[in-house]
């Protein structure tokens, strides 16, 4: 077992838990979205750590490709969530000014 693999994977798990906590505890939508992104980053981090096989061996390309796909999906989901939030805010503002 590689120490680096364990260290980096453990940090990924810590990021996952940290993001999940913030997602559950904090109320504003933007903070929830940042928290979700950090949760996702933790998952990606674990995958990249598993793919790493020491400096001598080439890394495993399969998790890399999965993470690459995941990054794009995460950003598109973030964009959609932010626009939904903006729309919700607009509706609330309209209600308040009425």
């Amino acid at each position: 077992m590689l120490t680096a693999q364990f260290l980096y994977g453990g940090a990924g798990l810590a990021l996952f838990v940290l993001g999940l906590w913030s997602f559950l505890v904090h109320e504003p939508l933007l903070r929830k979205i940042i928290a979700l992104n950090i949760t996702g980053a933790g998952v990606f981090h674990v995958l990249i750590a598993i793919a790493y096989r020491g400096d001598a061996a080439p890394p495993d390309p399969v998790p890399h490709a999965l993470v690459l796909t995941g990054i794009v999906v995460a950003v598109s989901a973030t964009a959609l969530a932010l626009m939904l939030g903006a729309r919700l805010q607009d509706a609330e503002d309209e209600d308040r000014s009425r």
Binding site: A4, Y8, L30, I33, I34, N37, A41, F44, I48, A49, A51, Y52, D55, P58, P59, H64, V67, L68, I71, V72, A74, V75, T78, A79, L82, G85, A86
Partner: peptide, 26 residues
């Protein structure tokens, strides 16, 4: 961690475009 492809994508998409979207929202 020898993942330069993913590092490029994260810097450009995750941090760059995601950050731009979130800044607009902020």
């Amino acid at each position: 961690l020898q993942a330069p492809d993913v590092a490029l994508a994260e810097a450009a998409i995750g941090a760059g475009l995601g950050g731009a979207l979130m800044l607009a929202a902020a």
